[in-house]
Amino acid sequence: MKKKKLNTLFSIREDIPKSWYFAGIIFTFIFFFAAWNVLSLMKLVDEVFLPTPVEVLATLLQSLADSDYWGEIGISVYRVFMGFLLACIIGIPLGIMAGTFKFAESFILPMSEFIRYMPAAAFIPLIMVWAGIGETAKILVIFIGCFFQLVLMVADDTNRISKDLLSASYTLGANRLQVITRVIIPAMLPKLLTTMRLIMGWAWTYLVVAELVAANSGLGYSIMKAQRFLDTESIFVGIIVIGLLGLIIDRCFAIANKKLFPWAEGGSN
């Protein structure tokens, strides 16, 4: 019996009992916080650099009880969503075009491949010249960090659609526009939602970079301000809050994918 259970546990891409899955999650978090406690309580790391989990939790609760901190959260959420939405509005149509027409691919993909290796932070001086130091500049940093990756991934999602499906639609009398709107786009929607889910994760990673642009509000600004005063608890709190917000949004995407496209492979991820 034990051997059978071990075989099940280490079977490639096979489901395991939910109780085992959740046990793995719980064990991981317990191990993480236990290691953190050992390092901080035994003074193996200076408390200035690694506060105890209790101190971080107390600071977190204190911050969440402050309405001003919720304002910082709201500002950061606004910046992330605006940069993400702008990238989607422009990038998704371009990605679909590049994945559908070879002539569009020749115009769009090489440049996107080239620019995506440039760090978004390197564009900050140019963005400040072009857009000033207001909200537009911060949104543009997130947009640049997401846009070129999104175009490439959407083009790849589009290109993965079987040519047999396209041939069948032509056989049934569909014209070029109908193939795009009724075959290609519906067929790629499950993968597109997964791609958007990944890009949203990147949008959150660019938040702190975006809030380096002459910011006086937001979670990234709070982290940088805490760093200047060696307020390590507040740094941890900012990182945890960003992680929790990203996790909540990620779960929303996963649930939407499961509900909208239950038949698609990976739709339940």
Rank of each mutant, 00 (worst) to 15 (best):
M196D: 04
S162D: 15
I248M: 12
N216W: 01
L247G: 00
L86C: 01
E113C: 06
W36G: 11
V151K: 02
S67L: 12
I12Q: 07
E233M: 12
L94Y: 08
W36C: 11
T232E: 05
F33I: 15
I25N: 10
E55T: 12
A35Y: 05
T195E: 08
D157M: 07
M1R: 09
I185V: 14
E105T: 02
A174T: 06
G71M: 03
I199S: 05
T232G: 04
I248G: 02
G267W: 04
M1I: 10
F123L: 12
A210D: 07
V237Y: 00
K258H: 14
L230Q: 11
V237D: 02
T28V: 11
R176I: 07
M188R: 03
T194I: 14
D46G: 00
L230E: 08
R13M: 11
F10S: 10
D156Y: 01
F143R: 03
R182P: 00
N269W: 12
M128S: 13
G201F: 08
G71N: 06
W130N: 03
F49A: 05
I73S: 05
I108Q: 07
D250E: 14
I185F: 04
W202P: 00
I180D: 10
P186A: 13
I248K: 02
N216Q: 14
I127S: 01
V208I: 14
P190G: 08
A122C: 06
V45Y: 02
N7L: 10
W20S: 09
A155I: 12
L140H: 05
G173D: 13
V38R: 09
K138Q: 09
I90H: 02
L192T: 11
M42G: 08
K4H: 03
Y117H: 15
A155H: 04
Y206K: 05
F31G: 15
I25E: 07
E211K: 03
G134F: 01
F101K: 09
K138G: 11
Y69L: 03
R79G: 05
A34E: 06
K3A: 13
I249F: 09
G220N: 02
P17M: 08
P262L: 14
I75H: 01
L61G: 04
K138Y: 04
S234R: 08
D156M: 10
F27N: 11
S67M: 12
G91D: 08
W204I: 04
A120G: 06
